[in-house]
């Protein structure tokens, strides 16, 4: 099987003026990649990943998934590329944990038996099965994040995208989320994660991409790129906290 999963080809999407948006992005994601997309707020990370499943359409350039332009079949692209959004509250659709997880497969008009089996499987994997009848609004931040992952995992995606997954999470939830990411990566999912704080995942990542002002500035091995992060407004995870904050 081809190792290239997703490839962007001179992708450009400008918002109004030529100042904000993304410009000339060429990126290749392999099937076994764990990519950290680092950059400060407003540098275009969210805009870029929304092109990967066709939520935004490029002004110029293409996104190829398994060698096919994603605009040919958006449903397939959205099934294969799962996305966990930044704000966990606005991506919950149904009113029980079970139904929330079943939303995706129901949209694909799968059979009820297959849906139930898949949902139970995904909920067990993420340790949410005992909460299956709860209203998602009553879950904790970490549980909501895991529920969002369960909701896309049932659709058996090849690529899972996380948008700022650590925002608003406490330390134990971050730890458990990093564990989940590691499990997902090991079970054969490619992962793309945007973040302005690379510390929790730098040891897991296979590749780091640094963005600034809508362009890719650096890409390569995460550890060796760490020292240059500060010049793009991202904290170097290897600088001790005390030193970083000493004024």
């Amino acid at each position: 099987m081809d190792t290239v999963l997703l490839k962007t080809d001179h992708l450009t999407h400008a918002f109004g003026s030529e100042q904000s948006g993304i410009f000339d992005i060429c990126l290749t994601i392999a099937r076994d990649d764990f990519i950290v997309l680092a950059g400060k707020n407003g540098c275009g990370k969210t805009t870029l990943i929304r092109h990967f499943n066709g939520l935004l359409m490029p002004d110029r350039g293409r996104v190829l998934l398994d060698g096919q332009d994603i605009q040919k079949n958006l449903t397939v692209a959205r099934k294969k590329v799962g996305m966990v959004f930044q704000d966990p509250d606005t991506q919950i659709i149904a009113d029980t944990v079970f139904d929330e997880t079943a939303f995706g497969p129901e949209n694909l008009n799968m059979g009820r038996e297959a849906i139930n089996a898949g949902v139970i499987n995904a909920l067990k994997l993420l340790g949410l099965y005992h909460l299956r009848d709860r209203n998602p609004a009553t879950l904790s931040g970490g549980e909501k994040r895991r529920l969002a992952i369960a909701g896309i995992l049932v659709m058996a995606p090849d690529l899972i995208i996380f948008d700022e997954p650590f925002a608003n999470l406490d330390y134990p939830s971050i730890v458990s989320l990093v564990r989940v990411c590691r499990t997902l990566h090991r079970s054969g999912h490619a992962i793309v994660m945007t973040t302005h704080d690379v510390a929790p995942v730098i040891m897991l990542a296979t590749k780091m991409v640094v963005m600034d002002k809508g362009r890719i500035k650096e890409q390569g091995d995460p550890i060796s790129l760490a020292p240059c992060l500060e010049s793009y407004g991202v904290k170097n995870p290897f600088t001790p906290m005390a030193q970083a904050w000493a004024l």
Binding site: L55, R78, M83, F85, D89, I93, N109, M155
Partner: peptide, 23 residues
Amino acid sequence: QSADDLSLAMQARCYSENRTDAR
């Protein structure tokens, strides 16, 4: 604004009206 976010989340999960029936 949250409604706009929600519409993106639903599209990302392949929302369609041709859905599996409720049980």
